[in-house]
Structure formats: structure tokens, C-alpha cells
């Protein structure tokens, strides 16, 4: 059975990991304007309306790692991240729910 398509209109935002809100099964992301408490690190991804992507991760030496790519929302509510011209996504995340203030993905 197909799941209901999430509201794609609210997806293009800079989403930052709000790990304090995670559960055993899900990860929670908030817009970059959210008032986050101090943390050793937060991953984030900026989903641009034109389909381009800016990811920020945690480097092995604790610096930030910035990477560019593209993103796409698939019919099954999967968020796929692509690097360069590669046809296979380097990261795939299943969206559980999303509104303008909160994005929840399955771990």
C-alpha cells in the first residue's frame, strides 16, 4: 500500500539535527533558525528549492565537513541525496513526517 505523500512544499529549508528529540527509531531535524542548545556537533542539510544540496557533517577530527550535491523526494517519501553526476544516491532517508518546523526520518 502506498503511503500518503508528504508535503514537499515545506522541505526546501536548512535542516539541522535536533538529536535531543531523537527516539530509538527516528531522527528529528529542525530549521536552522531553531534555538538549539550547545552540542559537540550537529549534522545538517540545506535543501535548496532548485534541487541543489549543501550537507554539513562531522569530520574525523571534529571539524565540519561541507559537501555539495543534489536532492530528490521519491514517491515513497524517501529523501535521496546525490553526489556529482552519480546515478545512485549516497544517502537515502525515509521521511516519517514533515511540517515547516519539524522533519522526522526513520533511523
Amino acid at each position: 500500500m502506498m503511503s500518503k505523500k508528504v508535503n514537499a512544499d515545506v522541505l526546501p529549508q536548512w535542516w539541522v539535527h535536533s538529536h535531543e528529540e531523537d527516539t530509538e527509531a527516528e531522527m528529528v531535524f529542525r530549521p536552522a533558525t531553531f534555538n538549539f542548545p550547545p552540542s559537540r556537533g550537529r549534522i545538517s542539510f540545506d535543501l535548496k528549492p532548485d534541487g541543489s544540496l549543501a550537507e554539513s557533517g562531522i569530520a574525523p577530527d571534529d571539524r565540519r565537513l561541507e559537501t555539495k550535491g543534489t536532492w530528490k523526494l521519491e514517491d515513497d517519501n524517501t529523501l535521496a541525496f546525490y553526489t556529482g553526476s552519480q546515478s545512485a544516491p549516497h544517502r537515502v532517508m525515509r521521511i516519517t513526517s514533515v511540517d515547516k518546523d519539524r522533519l522526522v526520518i526513520k533511523k
Binding site: P38, G41, D61
Partner: peptide, 12 residues
């Protein structure tokens, strides 16, 4: 930054 403030970084 929007991701917060680094606490530290190192060099291997």
C-alpha cells in the same frame, strides 16, 4: 553557526 558552536578540533 546554525549548526551551533564547535567545542574543539584536532589534528591526527
Amino acid at each position: 553557526t546554525p549548526q551551533g558552536q564547535l567545542l574543539g578540533y584536532a589534528q591526527f
